[in-house]
Amino acid sequence: MAGAVRLEPVDERNLEPLLSVAAAEAEPEDVMPPVDAPAGWSLARRDAFREFHRASFAGLDGPTRTRMYAILTGGEVVGMVRMTRCDEPGTVETGMWLGRSARGQGLGAAALRELLNAAAAAGMHTVLARTTTDNAGALSVLRKCGAKLRNDDGKVRAEICLDSALPAV
């Protein structure tokens, strides 16, 4: 299944399917900023999820400087990957989540490769990511995509240079 991934900019058409996957297969704190609301996927959290994603509909040149993409495989939404413009010219930061049923199938690396292509097409030269030393899935995806990893007190900073060829799958 690895490689059978397509990215679509998050918009009103795919926002509800994205929310459905998040609510069924992820914890709120893994897919959106904290919200002062009852635990779990309360109505308030679902509304906050929608607003969080809608705020980035304008893309890299919009107020949030972020483009979010629904990750699709087999025509179904399985997660989200984003890129956010950094202050350093030609640099974006990325983050991603996948629903539990989509993990461990190579979809994360395939989605990140698609994002790297989108970042290069947008004129970017560097993609950064941050994770923790215990996030084995994220570290594996980043390594597969050629990231240079730097450990900094329990946190990992990853950097992918788009000016060179990406490693083969």
Results as ranks from 00 to 15, higher is better:
W41L: 08
A44P: 08
R45S: 14
R46H: 12
R50N: 05
F52G: 00
R54Y: 07
A58E: 11
R65N: 10
R67W: 02
Y69N: 01
T73F: 01
G75Q: 09
E76V: 06
V77E: 10
V78H: 03
G79I: 12
V81A: 07
T84K: 08
D87M: 08
P89M: 10
P89S: 09
P89W: 04
G90E: 13
T91L: 02
T91E: 11
T91H: 00
G95M: 00
W97E: 07
L98H: 02
G99C: 02
R103W: 11
G106I: 13
G108W: 09
A109H: 09
A110D: 12
A110W: 08
A110H: 11
L112T: 05
E114I: 03
L115I: 10
A120V: 03
G123D: 01
M124Y: 10
T126V: 12
L128D: 05
A129R: 13
A129L: 07
R130I: 13
T131M: 13
T133W: 00
T133V: 15
T133Q: 08
G137V: 12
A138S: 15
R143I: 10
C145Q: 05
C145K: 00
V156R: 11
A158L: 04
S164G: 06
A165F: 01
A165V: 11
A165N: 09
L166V: 14
A168N: 08
A168R: 10
A168G: 14
